[in-house]
Write a protein that binds this DNA or RNA. Structure first.
Lengths: 337, 337
DNA sequence: CCTGATCGTCGAATCGATTCGCCAAAAAGC
DNA sequence: GCTTTTTGGCGAATCGATTCGACGATCAGG
């Protein structure tokens, strides 16, 4: 069933059907009605491929996700969901491409096959070949997180530096003098993963500013590593009375480690950080944390991308989100020694 | 850059370029080499829309996911990832459509716009209008989970009934005489959600067969509900010595509830079930459970769908997975009274 | 009553690939 | 050496939509 079929049944030409549908030229109310009736009856919709070919745009966005081999975090997944939702609101479809490095088949297929009008790149590294590839192909794109050269590209990011710093200030206000940062995994830090770097920077600055003793440890992104990490931290550095973290996947382990050691939060130890809301709420006691605003990030990324598609030459815009810290139950006054 | 450009630079006709690429007609080694050189130089790839229009297939699969409003479980997400990965292996792209009910814009766009060659439907209900819509549109599809009329359609599913029954047998073998089933949420059960129904069925059958006292409770899909549920269960039914569950999201809460009540697992209480591996491994002590094989399910769904696309008239095949139960540390002999 | 503008519709070209039929040159057969 | 077959490549049609130029009908102005 194609536009010709509709035209024949309605007794008009194919172009008239097209104009009736798009409204780009006037069509008599009567003719339009006849056409619409046939369309409703047959449930016709223009073939996406034909339309894409003629119009030169696909009404589809590409979303590049990390490959499944790296288990995606909840935060990433809720971000994917919100991107898809935001795109659907704009009547756009989303094509998924799992690709880590460059020269990835699926990534190449999407880019050089012109399958999408624009791309959202997740899990970006400080130096990322995919960015260069997209620029070369002249395909609009938005990155989640930013590269070492943030000015030339569009991006959406969470201001981990500021948020971690705020946590430090909050804890300092409560009287804590020795605070630890539990960072993401050593591998990520070594790979130049942006959030981990910026968290470290914000942490160090805030600690220095408040004259606070600071300590930084890396921690694998899972419960077991978290348990391990917090136990070693408590043993090796008993002077530490609080920790800040952006490693949400380690939180269940941190909680277990503290419980096992008989540490009561927040009486004996305070903890705060940045985490998707449900990680914070599942923590016991509920975690004082900046909730990563995945919904806004997804919607923001789509908005930025649509703008960029509409005006590819405009100077790139950025969206740096600094969600408020929700004061929950995991932070309290420093214990009296 | 299109096929005409390649043809001009290589000094051949467009059709020759096409044949050189597809191999559907012989092309001299020399000509092919010249064409390939130009293609490599320019990084040419056929325009996906043009190809789709001519060939009548898009080389794209649709994956219908639950809308973001329902927070997707980890299991669902890892399934999405494995579908994408499996599709990528077959050089296919995946289009995501978040849609719950029928008459969803994004679902309709994909189906009647012929944007995909086939569809994978997640979170299917016992009666699902989307199935009818796909059949009417003549679009091949595979469902994850099955409907009330399982014979007419292709599906992949986990045999929750058998797995839950096996858990019951395992616990019965250990001497437990009073076992509870902690099901998914009451809303899901009311909505006719397949896994919940089949789990209940398998549970009841096995309990009857072994002459065991059984009790069924529903439980919301989050930690808080789990904590609540296990507490009430212990209070109201102290005779129960073991539970089986397929509600992985409630596991952290169940664990917490048991710990708070001073119950030692498995000495005082045993628990077993069906859960994605990491939920089982994050449980303390690690959970005896059938690991939901999301990877096989994703790959299986893609395989089935590809078969169906190749032979739409063949009788529908099914894939019922019954992964082995991994004996971990959460089940032990029934406590002596 | 004739001319010029306006309105609605139509036909044809176009997007970029695939594929069928055909033709010329080279190879094989007698 | 001439016919027949094979081979390699070309031109044109096609997929289903959009869009531009044109054309006939209606209407207003002189």
């Amino acid at each position: 069933m194609n536009i010709g079929e509709i035209a024949r049944r309605a007794g008009v030409s194919r172009s008239t059907v097209s104009y009736a549908l798009s409204g780009k030229r006037p069509v008599t109310e009567e003719t339009r009605g006849r056409i619409q009736a046939v369309i409703d009856e047959l449930g016709y919709r223009p073939n996406a491929a034909a339309r894409a070919l003629k119009e030169g745009r696909t009404r589809t966005l590409g979303l590049v996700i990390p490959p499944a081999s790296l288990r995606l975090t909840d935060m990433q997944l809720s971000f994917v969901a919100s991107v898809v939702e935001a795109a659907a609101r704009a009547d756009l479809d989303v094509l998924l491409s799992p690709s880590g490095g460059d020269h990835d088949r699926s990534f190449e297929r999407i880019v050089s096959g012109r399958r999408v009008d624009g791309v959202i790149l997740m899990e970006i590294r400080l130096e990322d070949e995919r960015v260069a590839r997209l620029q070369q192909a002249g395909l609009p794109f938005v990155t989640i997180g930013h590269t070492a050269h943030p000015h030339g590209t569009c991006w959406v990011d969470v201001d981990y530096g500021t948020l971690i710093a705020r946590c430090v200030h909050h804890l300092a206000d409560l009287g804590h003098r020795q605070i630890a940062l539990i960072n993401r995994s050593a591998e990520l830090v070594a790979a130049g993963y942006g959030p981990a770097h910026r968290a470290l920077q914000g942490f160090t600055e805030a600690a220095t500013q408040r004259g606070i003793g600071s300590l930084t440890v890396t921690c694998g992104d899972d419960a077991a590593a978290g348990e391990d990490c917090i136990e070693r931290l408590r043993e090796d550095h008993p002077e530490i009375t609080a920790a800040v973290t952006l490693n949400e996947a380690a939180l269940p382990g941190i909680q277990r480690g503290l419980e096992r050691a008989g540490v009561t939060v927040p009486r004996d130890f305070s903890i705060a950080g940045v985490a998707a809301r449900h990680w914070a709420e599942d923590f016991r006691p509920q975690l004082t944390a900046a909730d990563v605003p995945t919904l806004e990030m997804g919607a923001g990324a789509v908005d930025l991308l649509l703008e960029r598609i509409a005006a590819p030459e405009a100077s790139p815009r950025h969206l740096l989100l600094t969600p408020p810290i929700s004061l929950r139950a995991s932070t309290g006054p420093a214990p009296i020694r």
